[in-house]
Design a protein around this nucleic acid. Structure first.
Length: 263
DNA sequence: ATGGTAGAAGGTCTA
């Protein structure tokens, strides 16, 4: 089962690029972030027709929004991250797909958190990460379920995950409180799928639209897959970053990442 | 220190 994640930064603007990539990469499941669309405006029929995908969205006007595309039926869909009834931002969607075995797919768009310090957005980011940790713990307690949490984490886990780490030390994506919160999630026993199988330098998933970041390869690795232990991690057979997508016509600032599971 | 770009909007807000 090939599972991909792609922050598309707007479904309307990205429809041609997203379609072209889906047709060549052929993921069984695609987790999308920043669809920037309400559910009613998402072109679900387009994906049903072009790829035989089932489509579930958790959208919002103008900002955020996540979606799941799957060649398998999407079962037991859950929209929204538990733990805060007041939270109206559309950043989380979960569903089960059954291939050779069942996998719980968690698609997430973790808050950016800037500006820091002292901003309410940063407090929201840290609180959201604690809610994610709680949810992951809950899924881990259901021992019969393998789960995979993928998406735009807005976290640079280590210095080697940035071309210029010194530029990010005070940023919400890299400051120590953020990385500690990410590590608390990983330390539940989850596996960073990409680093488990690829130790190469300069493996990035995001290049800012500004300052010629792509041309200078001034990137960061902030899109991740975390796999539950040991079952889901043991199923991992391959990983990748579709970097070349960033150099195409009308690209997103993120590129797709993917994993292969023997499931 | 500032502003640079992009998207959903059709004014700013978010990143």
């Amino acid at each position: 089962m090939k599972i991909a994640s792609y922050n598309i930064n707007g479904i309307k603007a990205r429809l041609p690029a997203l379609t072209a990539w889906l047709e060549e990469a052929k993921p069984d499941v695609a987790i999308l972030q920043e669809i920037k669309s309400i559910d009613e405006a998402f072109p679900r029929e387009h994906f049903e027709d072009m790829g035989g995908y089932s489509v579930e969205t958790h959208g919002q006007k103008s900002f955020n929004g996540v979606a799941l595309l799957s060649k398998y039926p999407l079962e037991d869909v859950m929209c929204g991250l538990p733990g805060d009834e007041e939270d109206e931002q559309a950043r989380y969607i979960e569903a089960t797909v059954v291939g050779d075995q069942a996998v719980r797919i968690c698609g997430l768009y973790l808050p950016n958190g800037n500006p820091v310090p002292g901003g309410p957005k940063y407090d929201y980011k840290l609180a959201w990460m604690e809610r994610l940790r709680t949810r992951a713990k809950e899924l881990l307690s259901k021992e019969e379920i393998f789960f995979m949490a993928g998406g735009d984490y807005n976290i640079i886990p280590q210095a080697e995950d940035a071309a210029r780490p010194e530029d990010w030390t005070e940023d919400a994506l890299f400051r120590m409180d953020s990385r500690d919160a990410f590590r608390r999630i990983v330390n539940l026993g989850l596996t960073d799928a990409f680093r488990a199988r690829n130790q190469a330098a300069e493996q990035y998933t995001f290049w800012d639209f500004q300052r010629g970041s792509w041309q200078r390869n001034d990137g960061i690795r902030i899109d991740h897959f975390l796999l539950s232990p040991p079952e889901c991690a043991d199923l991992l057979t391959d990983v990748g970053i579709d970097k070349e997508v960033r150099g195409r016509e009308k690209p997103s600032d993120h590129v797709p990442i993917w994993i292969e599971l023997a499931a």
